[in-house]
Amino acid sequence: MNDMQTMTAETRLSNDAAPKMTARDVSVYYGAKKAIDCVSIDVSQEHVTAFIGPSGCGKSTFLRTLNRMNDTIANARVDGAIELDGENIYAPSMDVVQLRARVGMVFQKPNPFPKSIYENVAYGPRIHGLAAGRSEMDAIVEQSLKRAGLWEEVKDRLQESGTALSGGQQQRLCIARAIAVEPEVILMDEPCSALDPIATAKIEELIHELRGRYAIVIVTHNMQQAARVSQRTAFFHLGNLVEYGETSEIFTNPRVERTKDYITGRYG
């Protein structure tokens, strides 16, 4: 196990024209504890990228560094460089509020605000001043809900509370909420772990449709899900990025022993 600490990730990818986000030697500390150790990874615009790995492996922590949500944790510290379109997101000139508008996030548990469905979706455009008037806002809300595949289900009750929806609908509402500010990247932190299989299927379908329009990064502990929705997969273990490649390759022909062990179910 000793070589693991020093090992760099096994990466085999055909070169992208320009990756949407790049991370170089990123380490994350909680106080004195190192949660992420020297991770380097590229996220492409065209593909859905899945982070897999056993729980506690740091995949969610790493995801949160991509839109600086770790800033809200008092003693968290991030080393290394993360760039969005070639711009360091931890640079002092980078504005975290704008960054988060460009890199949206969907959480593990659906967390709609205790407001109407309409207001949930309109929240982002409103705080960022993206709509010039009422009709424009209506259009944004409608478009976002349509893209999130929720419009048909809620168009007659937009003024009802977002918390009154079912779990799966709530999660799609959260996706609509994230879409409404036209982000460039959407981070999804185990978005289906609190949902039933039917709702999960709908979310997966949705991810499929959103692909290409947004760069999507999804963290999941469900390998079948990663295989279904993603084109690229990164395997994390104990704070390290172990292997990163085309999803089909990772699942059929992993190069690193640990990846194989995990995929074949030896541990997890």
Binding site: M69, R100, F107, F113, Y123, I127, R177
Partner: peptide, 22 residues
């Protein structure tokens, strides 16, 4: 719940916007 706060911050809201609106 903290999730509510995170949800708003992840949308790019400032702390005071999160407090006042969520």
């Amino acid at each position: 719940p903290q999730a509510m706060r995170d949800g708003s911050l992840a949308m790019g809201a400032t702390t005071s916007e999160t407090i006042r609106k969520v």
